[in-house]
Design a protein around this nucleic acid. Structure first.
Length: 263
DNA sequence: ATGGTTGACGATCAA
């Protein structure tokens, strides 16, 4: 089972890229972030024509997440538990092919100390609480998405210049690290010790051309999913396409025989 | 140069 995550930065602006990538990479499950449209405006038909079922948490202009799966989607929830007053579309979860998956768009946080920064840290705490609830089920699950957190110095092109800045403060990294401490596995890091592998390059300042990037998109696996982890990687290809998203897909493969057993 | 670029939307806001 091939599971991928991609912040598309507008599903409508990126529809041709999305369809091309779905055709070429052919993930069984695709977790999308920053779709930037209401559920009714999601290009459902074009995606369904490629054989995908769809679950959406939509919002106009900002945020928006989706799950695409070649298998049926069950037990869909469209908000991260823990704050009924939170109306931002940043979380959708479903069970598909015997694996629970979630598409997560952690807030960017804008600037350290801002209201948005506080919201980001609170969101990470809620994600920790929900992850613990899911861990108690002792089932395979994958929480994939744009975490907007650089975990370690090897995950950013110039750690010294990023020190203490947004995406890389000790508080953000601690909020992310607590997820690992609960028992989740970073699929990429579990199989690769490579530093300098990135998933996001800022549009500003020619980041892509200079490879000034950060690794902020992650697939976090429950122990039962990590036991099936066979392969993982970062697919830089779509970032090089004309009018690209500023993010590129990350993916992992869970061993088919074990995934079938779990189903 | 408190900078740079992109998307949604239609003046700025968010990233």
């Amino acid at each position: 089972m091939l599971i991928a995550s991609w912040n598309v930065n507008s599903v409508k602006a990126r529809l041709d890229h999305l369809l091309r990538w779905l055709g070429e990479a052919a993930p069984d499950v695709a977790l999308l972030q920053e779709t930037k449209c209401l559920e009714a405006a999601f290009p459902r038909e074009a995606v369904e024509d490629l054989g995908y079922n769809i679950a959406v948490a939509g919002q106009k202009t900002y945020n928006g997440v989706a799950i695409l799966s070649k298998r049926p989607l069950e037990d869909v929830i469209t908000a991260l538990p823990g704050d009924p007053g939170d109306d931002q579309a940043r979380y959708v979860e479903a069970v598909t092919g015997g694996v629970r998956v979630a598409s997560v768009y952690v807030p960017n946080g804008q600037s350290v100390g801002s209201d948005k920064y506080a919201y980001k840290l609170a969101f990470l705490e809620r994600l920790n609480a929900h992850a613990q609830t899911l861990l108690d089920l002792e089932e395979p699950f994958v929480l994939g998405g744009d975490y907007n957190v650089i975990p370690d110095p090897g995950d950013v092109w110039d750690p010294a210049s990023w020190e203490g800045g947004i995406l890389y403060t000790l508080a953000e990294r601690a909020g992310y690290r607590r997820l690992l401490n609960l028992g989740l596995t970073d699929a990429f890091r579990a199989l690769s010790g490579e530093i300098g592998r990135y998933t996001w390059w800022d549009y500003r300042g020619g980041g892509w051309t200079k490879d000034h990037g950060c690794r902020i998109d992650h697939l976090l696996l429950s122990p039962q999913a990590a036991d099936m982890l066979a392969e993982s990687g970062i697919d830089k290809t779509p970032r090089g396409w004309e009018k690209a998203s500023d993010h590129t897909p990350v993916w992992c493969r869970l061993a088919a025989e074990d995934a079938a057993r779990a189903a």
